[in-house]
Amino acid sequence: MLQIADLHVRVDGKEILKGVDLEVSAGEVHAIMGPNGSGKSTLAHVLAGREGYEVTRGEVRYEGRDLLALAAEERACAGVFLAFQYPVELPGVNNTYFLRAALNAMRRHRGEEEISAMAFMKLVRERLRVLHMDQALLKRPVNVGFSGGEKKRNEIFQMAVLEPRLAILDETDSGLDIDALRDVASGVNALRSAERAMVLVTHYQRLLSHVAPDFVHVLNDGRIVKSGDHKLALHLEEYGYAGVGEEAALS
């Protein structure tokens, strides 16, 4: 589904990604771990199409297409979803209206009819239940006055409604208390399917004890320096990232 080959990215003239290779197939959950400043969030943003990131080398193919050639909204309509590390507040923009506009934009893109108000509300209520999210949040402006946990739940809730094919979760677990972490994890698990792939970008192992990844990759200084299964995450939790970097340098 997603092939990243030799990806080099600069931000403000500084090289952040220095040759990332990654292959993700449908049905798989990949965790990308790494210390602060290793380039994890840059990778997530480049995949989502944020401007200000200069790709100097390499390519990204998504379902056979050149992902980097698409605008952010085209990527979203093609099924790529980014759960933001810092969800943005949109004053005056109603949460429900926003989500329905997003869903309808995607449906139009696929040549489908727009969803009726009634069918939409039914879908929304179903998805809310899994996340234990307060329905009152729907009537509020997007993320405005939401707590940190509510914002993260809202991201996963959006993902649940929009049903992407490739979901990239950027540090979704950071700043969550135990209950919110469990709800977010169950929201993620509910969306695991054979047709969908997920990339979990995270600093800690804590989300991964709820959402077992198929693969774990360690990103350090702009490169993936080690890949393995979920046991790698446990190893990192115990020994830290420093050892992994040296080990990779030796090999």
């Binding site: 989502a48 199409g49 944020r50 401007e51 605008a71 952010a72 909204e73 990527r75 979203a76 309509c77 979803f81 980014l82 933001f84 969800p87 943005v88 949109l90 004053p91 005056g92 923009v93 926003f98 989500l99 506009a101 997003a102 869903l103 934009a105 995607m106 893109h109 402006p141 959006q158 929009l162």
Partner: peptide
């Protein structure tokens, strides 16, 4: 970017944010 990352094209995203402002 947040709106565009949810599939809403730029023109509409601008309209939506302008509406929100007022």
């Amino acid at each position: 970017f947040y709106l565009r990352a949810r599939g809403i094209e730029e023109r509409s995203a601008r309209a939506l944010l302008t509406f929100g402002f007022l």
